[in-house]
Amino acid sequence: MSTKPKVLLAMHRNLGEQIFRREDFEFFKTFVDVNEISSLPEKVDEAFIRDNIKGVDICISCWGTPPFTKEVLDNADRLKLIAHSAGSVKPIVTDYVWEKGVRVTSAAPAIAVAVAEMTLGLMIIALKRVFQFNELTHRGFWKLEEEIVKSRSLYNVTVGIVSASHVGRNVIRLLKNFQVEILLYDPYVSLEEAERLGVKLVSLEELMARSDVVSLHAPSIPETYHMINRENIKLLKPGAILINTARGSLIDESALIERLARGDIFVCLDVTDPEPPEINSPLRILPNVILTPHIAGGNSITDRWRQGRYIIEQIYKFITQGTMDYEVTKEMLPRIA
């Protein structure tokens, strides 16, 4: 009989194939007893988890995994950890998880790296006006002087970060490679922590008014609904760039569209509200808007490999040290994505 901790993969088969690289999964099997990805159902349901969770120490969930209900957890006689290989755990955790003393982690920090990388890329190419130059060059123009003088680099500009979330902190880390001023708005960050991060803590209004680039990284919770609205959108200075790789609900899109119609700001939106945007939404036709279909994090195959590797590493730390780099607690839920 194996003495390794028993792990249950509880995810759709195609996600298991995408999340876990063969080499990583083989390494995983050196220290746990885990069901094979090929044995997973096409679509995992509550019955699959309920019928297989007895005797399991750790359960790995993902997008589409059903919630861990009382009916499921009544069969979980040894469950110690739920390791969610996707982002938000809100769709899967219930009060019974906390009542049973099961610990929880997720791959949110790994996904945040991918989102931060795309955010930085958008900053660079938006400041350089790559989108505009691409269109002009396709139309037969070349190095129009009146356009060249509008382009900028990530040098001697002010970047405003809204929320020191996982993504926000990764963006701040990446920006340390550039000579820029970083402003931060986050009501949960103290002056001391802001100093450690190397940013200046300011109000949202000051951030919107001073920044050359505003990047949104707040969670979608009631307190952040339309936090970017008519009153602070009007504070954006001409030439400002607004990037949203967080959630569409953060922005009052009608107010944003009004400002965009003036033509004096540029916006990169990886998220909208609703998703996708209405087919006749002005966001689809305005020339100063770049739209991508919510692809910043957790979509590419390499992004997903990073998630899988992160979860394997967290499980290894949990087994060998009883700790994890990122643990989700019940108290955190009201203010995380």
Rank of each mutant, 00 (worst) to 15 (best):
residue 272 T to Y: 08
residue 321 Q to W: 05
residue 276 P to W: 03
residue 309 R to P: 03
residue 303 D to P: 04
residue 271 V to H: 06
residue 271 V to L: 08
residue 292 T to K: 02
residue 280 N to L: 12
residue 315 I to E: 06
residue 299 N to A: 02
residue 303 D to H: 15
residue 287 P to Q: 03
residue 319 I to G: 03
residue 319 I to L: 13
residue 289 V to A: 10
residue 304 R to S: 10
residue 274 P to H: 01
residue 313 E to M: 10
residue 297 G to D: 10
residue 256 L to K: 02
residue 257 I to W: 08
residue 303 D to M: 08
residue 269 L to Y: 09
residue 282 P to H: 04
residue 265 I to G: 05
residue 267 V to T: 13
residue 282 P to W: 09
residue 272 T to I: 07
residue 268 C to D: 02
residue 273 D to E: 14
residue 274 P to G: 01
residue 317 K to T: 09
residue 258 E to H: 13
residue 322 G to I: 02
residue 257 I to V: 15
residue 265 I to L: 04
residue 270 D to Q: 00
residue 294 H to C: 07
residue 260 L to R: 07
residue 274 P to Q: 00
residue 284 R to G: 05
residue 288 N to L: 09
residue 308 G to T: 11
residue 299 N to H: 13
residue 261 A to T: 15
residue 264 D to R: 12
residue 269 L to V: 07
residue 280 N to W: 09
residue 309 R to A: 14
residue 265 I to N: 09
residue 311 I to K: 02
residue 298 G to Y: 11
residue 316 Y to E: 15
residue 271 V to A: 10
residue 283 L to Q: 05
residue 313 E to T: 02
residue 285 I to Q: 05
residue 260 L to T: 09
residue 259 R to A: 13
residue 306 R to M: 13
residue 282 P to C: 11
residue 313 E to D: 15
residue 297 G to N: 07
residue 310 Y to T: 06
residue 288 N to E: 11
residue 270 D to P: 00
residue 282 P to I: 04
residue 305 W to C: 01
residue 280 N to E: 15
residue 258 E to C: 02
residue 323 T to V: 10
residue 306 R to L: 15
residue 319 I to K: 05
